[in-house]
Amino acid sequence: MEHDTTNVLTVEHLSHVYSPGTPFEKKAVDDVSFSARKGEFIGLIGHTGSGKSTLIQHFNGLLAPTSGRVLINGEDIFQSKEMTRAARFAVGLVFQYPEYQLFEETVYADVAFGPKNMGLDKEEIDRRVRENCRIVGLSESALDKSPFELSGGQKRRVALAGIFAMEPEVMVLDEPMAGLDPAGCADVFRFIQEYHEKHGTTILFVTHSMEYAAQMAQRIVVMQRGRILMDGTPEQVFSRAQELLEAGLDVPQVTRVFLELKRRGLPVDTGVYTMEQAAAQLRAMKGGAVC
């Protein structure tokens, strides 16, 4: 895939301290710098409390940094109120369990809430609602239903469509698969990929599942105690599997199997993170082992 190499989203030396000056003071994000290029598909990984959720709420200006800057297309989003508001639309943020934010009488109206706030005209809103409901697999007949009569998985789709319909330049998803059954996870996974292919949007998704990160992301950022521990391609990150394990994080199952194989003396490369790579390596070894 060819990608434009300009940075859409840049974070410079960002720190965030909760309740400063009280006994409850807590530094959630500590001097983080990072940038996302146009069209990148990034997985953000870290423990609960590693500062992921705090960090992503700076991207669209929901939280203001204690120090540091957030830039969208090179412009500081906190320089004026208008810029902050523009950031809300440039960066779409899907919160954890987004189905808890549904409130409208119909699915259609709920998906249209974001686009309507953007001040789009009726035809454009209609196009976006229908198109994005299709992406998340909601049928035309579901559009007039109340979102509260839908099942949990269906509600999640409506909530996703609500952010998709804003067609942001950067889409940030906080644990989009949390609480879904395996089929539901696979669906959400597919919707995000389909949307990414269609719009070339920069996607950043938070997860603590290494399996999803390995399968989906082109780039993985690992956070620990408010700082960035690793940032690179899945190959680079998972080649440091031992370090990840020591940091108390998980690695994909295949990687763990290969780590164990290496420990038992097989000359394997432990940077594998998908089944295909693993199979290819084992096949190559089998061929080479004939000697």
Partner: peptide, 27 residues
């Protein structure tokens, strides 16, 4: 949490007169 989520969808709680603000609380 809900306020943040709706703000992310462009909801505006801090401007307009009292009726607009009251209506903005529905979401």
């Amino acid at each position: 949490k809900i306020m943040s989520a709706q703000k992310a969808r462009g909801a505006d709680f801090d401007s307009g007169n009292i009726f607009r603000r009251a209506k903005a609380l529905v979401p």
